[in-house]
Structure formats: C-alpha cells, structure tokens
C-alpha cells in the first residue's frame, strides 16, 4: 500500500519527537525466535548466523518492528571470565563467577569484543541483521548494564552483599564492568546496532533506591553519557518493580525506559515528559495457560502509553517467553498496530 511507513521510518520519527500515525510495535522477541526458527538455545546463543536467521524468521512471522540481539545478561561477565552454562532449551546461566575472592579483581581483564566469550557471536548476528534488513528495521543490541555485569562477575548474592559490606570493591568491579560495556557498545554501534541497556538486577524488586542511586545509576549514567556523545538514543530496560526508582530513571539520561512491573500511568506522570516509554504487557499473558485475554490487558497499556508526552513504544514488560503462544503474540501485535495517536 502506498504511503505506509516501515519500522525504520516510524522509529526515526519517534526519536525526533514526531508522532505521525502510531507508535512502533516492538515486543521483546528474543529467545522465542529460536522456537520460531526451530533451533535449540545452545546454537541460538553461540552461533551468530543462527541467531540472525532466527530473528529474521520471527520478524517475518510476527511483523514486529525491530530486531533484537540478545541471549542472556551474562554476556559481558562471561567475556571477562565467568563461566556460564549453555543449555538446550533454556537461556544460559551463571555456573561459576570469576571473582570468587575479591582479591581477584586486580587480575580482571577487559574483554576483547572480537574474541572474548560470545561477544563475537553477538557482533556477527548484528552485522548479518543490519546487512539483511538494516534499511527497514532498526537493530537493537541488548547490552548488560554495569550493575548486572558486576553481579555476573562476582555471583549475584555475593555482589549484593558486597554493596553493603565491601562497597569499595563493588565500585571497583562496577568501574571495570562499565569500561567493558563501553567497549562492547562501541563495537555494536560499528556493526550497525543501537545499544539498549538491560539491567535486570537493578530492579526495585531487588535493591533499594539508595543502592540504585549509589551503585547502578552512576554507571548507567556514565555509559549513557558515552553513547550520547554519539547522539544515540538509549533505551534502559529494568526488570520487575521500579516504582521506587522511576523518578531516577531520567537522571541516568536514558531516552527510552523499558518498564516491566510498573503501572504505565505512574511512569507517565513521573518521567513521561522527559523519557519515552517502552512497555509493558506482562509476558505471562502470552502463555497458553494465561486466563486473561490480550484485549483485556493491553487496553490500559496502549491507551495510557500512547498519551505519553515524550512518546511510546508498544512492547512487552520483559522478554517474550520462549514457549509463548504465537497466536497471543500475534494478537497483541495486531492490536498494537491498530492503535492511533489522538
């Protein structure tokens, strides 16, 4: 049909405060792509070509408006030496952190994006996606934020404990995680992707506002400042409940906030004039077992989000479940595409 915009065009307008027809519809279709493509998660997580093919297959199937390069939040920690366990049908998990003793921090080395861990897998996937569809679809590289990476280097419990008992060591680890993230973000950009920071552990469900302000926020801000030097619009995704820190999100400098278990009205009234919102259908709604219809649940999200002053992206609160019911996701995307700015 003549006059129809493609996702690249629609995102481009959103990022310069233009609201022509409707928000981009971009549910976080990540590992679910492997189910669409019919591959196991070990290949999906360790072969950039397969990751890219799977993403393209999923995008062809659902028509959502962006490609997502993401496997797991341990990506950078693994590249710095933590051991992760890759599994056939589940996402990789931390097996053994590299920093079992704090004294090991001094020996920690920054990763080489071209060779460490699975960083090259990511870059290959980005490159392939950008080459294949970069003119019509934005490619998002989900990069673990420093707080989350530090936890992957140290082990989650130990790192959280460190923030209270060994704050200096925690900061040292965060500083290194930040440097690694900057280095990796640069490579993602050069392959054509827009970095999107994921910080699941900096959730208000896990840490206090004070801990967030002292250990997560400053490093996110530094990372975002680096990306802003290149005039890039940065999305920050934080899982779980974030009402206690939502007002601090704009202090990180994030241009878009991908929210999870937070009422979009609260996000809108708190930071909606400064930050574009991305969200936030609860992923379990997409499971076959969910008794709630998509219509019932997305009504409030879309109606409220679309009125956000700085703009809105119709999305899910977190990753689409690997084994979600495709019909439900299709339904959500269809309803999203029918939405219109007032």
């Amino acid at each position: 049909m003549a006059g129809e915009m493609n996702p690249r065009e629609r995102w481009g307008l959103l990022l310069i405060d233009e609201f022509p027809d409707r928000p981009p519809v971009y549910p976080l279709v990540t590992s679910h792509a492997s189910a669409v493509y019919g591959c196991d998660l070990i290949s999906y997580c360790s072969d950039g070509k397969i990751l890219a093919e799977a993403q393209l297959a999923a995008q062809r199937k659902y028509g959502h408006e962006g490609l997502s390069v993401f496997t797991d939040v341990g990506l950078i920690a693994e590249a710095m030496g933590s051991k992760y366990h890759l599994r056939e049908f589940e996402v990789p998990i931390l097996n053994r952190p590299i920093i079992e003793e704090l004294s090991a921090i001094d020996k920690l080395k920054l990763p080489d994006p071209g060779g460490s861990g699975r960083l090259p897998v990511y870059l290959e996937a980005i490159e392939k996606l950008y080459q294949a569809k970069g003119d019509v679809l934005p490619v998002f590289a989900f990069v673990p934020a420093p707080f989350t990476t530090a936890a992957g280097l140290r082990g989650i419990e130990d790192f959280l404990v460190d923030t209270i008992t060994e704050p200096e060591a925690a900061h040292q680890l965060l500083e290194l995680s930040l440097e690694a993230a900057i280095k990796f973000c640069d490579e993602c950009i050069l392959c054509g992707a827009l970095p999107m920071l994921v910080d699941p552990l900096a959730s208000g469900s896990v840490i206090s506002r004070r801990t967030f302000a002292e250990f997560a926020l400053p490093y996110n801000r530094k990372l975002i400042t680096h990306l802003h030097r290149y005039d890039l619009d940065v999305t920050l995704h934080i899982c779980g409940e974030t009402s206690s820190i939502v007002d601090l999100i704009s202090d990180t400098g994030a241009d878009l906030f991908s929210l999870d278990k937070l009422d979009i009205d609260i996000a809108r009234s708190s930071i909606g004039d400064k930050v574009r919102l991305v969200g936030n259908l609860a992923p379990h709604n997409l499971m076959a077992s969910s008794g709630v219809s998509i219509e019932d649940n997305c009504h409030h999200i879309i109606d409220s989000g679309i009125r956000n002053k700085k703009g809105f992206v119709i999305s899910t609160g977190c990753e689409v479940p690997i084994r979600c019911q495709p019909e439900k996701l299709q339904k959500y995307i269809k309803l999203g595409k029918e939405a219109r700015y007032e």
């Binding site: 469900s205 899982c239 999870d260 278990k261 379990h284 499971m287 969910s290 008794g291």
Partner: peptide, 12 residues
C-alpha cells in the same frame, strides 16, 4: 516469583 501472578496461579 516476578513473572507470575494470581491469574497465572489460577490458570495452572
């Protein structure tokens, strides 16, 4: 757990 809720509990 974070992703589950009453609706999910009921459904399973």
């Amino acid at each position: 757990g974070a992703p589950v809720n009453q609706d999910f509990a009921d459904s399973i």
